[in-house]
Nucleic acid binder design. Structure first.
Length: 153
DNA sequence: GCCAACGTTGGC
DNA sequence: GCCAACGTTGGC
């Protein structure tokens, strides 16, 4: 099993929205090639995902989701009415991919970014070094430190 | 709202 | 294939 971190702007879609939905959600609209490659090739059913709230008042890891379906073409790229429409994407060879995730857990307290920054064992986290990547790998060790030591449940 | 980092585009 | 211009992300 692998571990990931997905960013979302909570004003648009938050861990609470995922919990309220109570069903798998399409994680769509990822328009970055590195993130696309992970969605298409690497992320597997059953993988665990930290849900990270960005560009908001309380920045940090808000909870956990689980991957329930993988590697399908992002439907929004073919929808001309969508903000995520990509007229250059060929339906026979889609440019963008998506996965489904379902809610697992909402932490009692969000783990703030500045707490993560203060843990030396997390200094190699992609989040703290390549912060603009919106779908990123988390090592087993990083997952375990965060999940076992930093989460307030 | 600012701005640094960095990804993408497009002319050459 | 280079690189300047431009656009976006995201913390502060």
């Amino acid at each position: 099993m692998a571990y990931w971190l997905f960013k979302t702007e909570p004003d648009v879609f938050s861990i609470d929205d995922l919990e309220a939905k109570g069903a798998p959600e399409v994680w769509e609209g990822i328009r970055n090639y590195q993130a696309r490659n992970l969605l298409r090739d690497e992320i597997a059913v059953g993988d665990q995902v930290f849900i990270y709230h960005s560009s908001c008042k309380h920045i940090g890891i808000a909870g956990i989701a689980e991957v329930t379906r993988t590697g399908f073409a992002d439907p929004f790229q073919f929808n001309a009415a969508s903000d995520y429409y990509d007229p250059k994407s060929d339906p026979d060879n889609p440019r963008w991919f998506a996965v489904d995730v379902c809610f697992v857990e909402r932490f009692d307290a969000l783990i703030p970014l500045n707490v993560l920054k203060g843990v030396s064992a997390l200094s190699d986290m992609v989040l703290l070094n390549r912060s603009r990547l919106s779908i990123q790998p988390v090592s087993e060790q990083e997952w375990s430190i965060i999940n076992n030591k930093l989460v307030v449940r």
